[in-house]
Design a protein around this nucleic acid. Sequence first.
RNA 1: UGAGUUAAUCAUACGGUCGCGGGCCGCGAAAGCGGCGUGAGGAAAGUCCGAGCAUCCCAGGGCAAGGGUGCCUGCUAACGGCAGGUGGAGGCGACUUUAAGGAAAGUGAACAGAAAUACACCGCCGCGCAUUUUUGCGCGGUAAGGGCGGAAUGGCGAGGUAAGAGCUCACCGUUGUUUCGGUAACGAAGCAAGCCAAUUAAACCCCACCCGAUGCAAGAUUGGGACGUAUGCUCGCUUAAAUGCGGAGACUGCCCGUCUGCAUACGUCCGUUAAUAUCGCUUGAGCGCAUGGGCGACUGUGCGCGUAGAUAGAUGACCGUACACGACAGAACUCGGCUUACAGAUUAAUCUCAAACC
RNA 2: AGGAGCAUAGCUCAGCAGGUUAGAGCACCACCCUGAUAAGGUGGGGGUCGGUGGUUCGAGUCCACUUGCUCCUA
Length: 108
Amino acid sequence: MNYLRIKKNREFLKIFKRGIRVHSPALSLILFPSGTMRMGIALSKKHGKAVERNRIKRLIRESFNKNLHMLQKNWAVVVLPRVADGYSFKTFEKSFIICFKKVNGWGK
RNA sequence: UGAGUUAAUCAUACGGUCGCGGGCCGCGAAAGCGGCGUGAGGAAAGUCCGAGCAUCCCAGGGCAAGGGUGCCUGCUAACGGCAGGUGGAGGCGACUUUAAGGAAAGUGAACAGAAAUACACCGCCGCGCAUUUUUGCGCGGUAAGGGCGGAAUGGCGAGGUAAGAGCUCACCGUUGUUUCGGUAACGAAGCAAGCCAAUUAAACCCCACCCGAUGCAAGAUUGGGACGUAUGCUCGCUUAAAUGCGGAGACUGCCCGUCUGCAUACGUCCGUUAAUAUCGCUUGAGCGCAUGGGCGACUGUGCGCGUAGAUAGAUGACCGUACACGACAGAACUCGGCUUACAGAUUAAUCUCAAACC
RNA sequence: AGGAGCAUAGCUCAGCAGGUUAGAGCACCACCCUGAUAAGGUGGGGGUCGGUGGUUCGAGUCCACUUGCUCCUA
């Protein structure tokens, strides 16, 4: 299963404006219908210094890639992690599973 | 044994499964697939300096302004960095630390205080007058004492004096000078002056030396280019005409000097579409070892090594083992420094101090 | 990533070539005025000048480091 990255600021703004939001304990998703599977991550300085932000991106990419097969449709997804004291792979994975179940639910 | 000082190194390690960015090789028309190997730091950080590199009508000379540096000698591509030394400060010591030019070029310096380079408030002393005495008033001397203050006529002792005072003398300090040592900063010794010239320059300032601006979001390639015409910038005179002169503009300001079109639209000819692109983009004042020179920073020679290049931005997830249970922290054009953050671990000193023992 | 700035009372801002006590407006409190409120008048409280260190007799001001925030450059 492959996906493309969302890179242009224009695309991010479009998804922020018109996308559908799904929430879970560790992160929120904004989804928008798309022809190909695409994903982008939005982080701010509030999440920590450069080392911490890089680590969050790695954890999200890893857990997203691992659980991507659950989605039945192609979406453009923007991932918004919540600001917390610590971040771990397990909490992100759990939150992705919760979100993907919700998405598949209202797909039917 | 305890407490220190200085210098240096490392920055969890190993194995398995899955995954990511470059590179090379193979297969493939391509998309892609497979294999091999490689992939963050001592500070990658702050952006405080110095360079390379790039662009800017290439920046040339003089004066001015602005900014920076400031003991000496070296090192370096260069530096505001480093090394070695000098003076000051701190420590019993090993050692550490230091923006350290000039106050006899000039200006300024609140409040307090009589006075801030100086003018006597209290006090001390002398003289005159008054007064029985005590004492009071006036004139003068005096910087030893009190008081004010961050700072009060160099400090301390002796002589001296009416009382005092470098007024005189010894010692110390200061300044000047001579000799010696040192490349020099400076040091040592001698002689002289008798203190004139307080402090403050991270206050203005003066002196010496240095500095073009902007930064890879620089910039290059292509997104069209060449020629002609018109209009605008663009002001005056002149001319068919940016033709010529002046003005104007650019080179931070002025003088000299140099340079002068640019933009837009239309027409003709040549060329052909990708901008989320390609290059810049990583081999460089490189790193390690040996050896020669130098107290050292550093450097000559020889041998060896091949060392990230991303672009919403690559190092992660899970499992196992070990222990001291893992700090600060992520390359973004590249180097040399400085500064700041940081759990700890290890090593080296004919290093220092204290205690005990021999 | 590169570059430029700002920080002073609850809020918005002054503050000189370093000097005695850091000001102004709004807001707050008390009183006056009114039958009562607003407006107006009088008086008052509130500041380790973002932090640490240095220079100086003395630092909001000068210097160094540091923290937070803002803006510009595709």
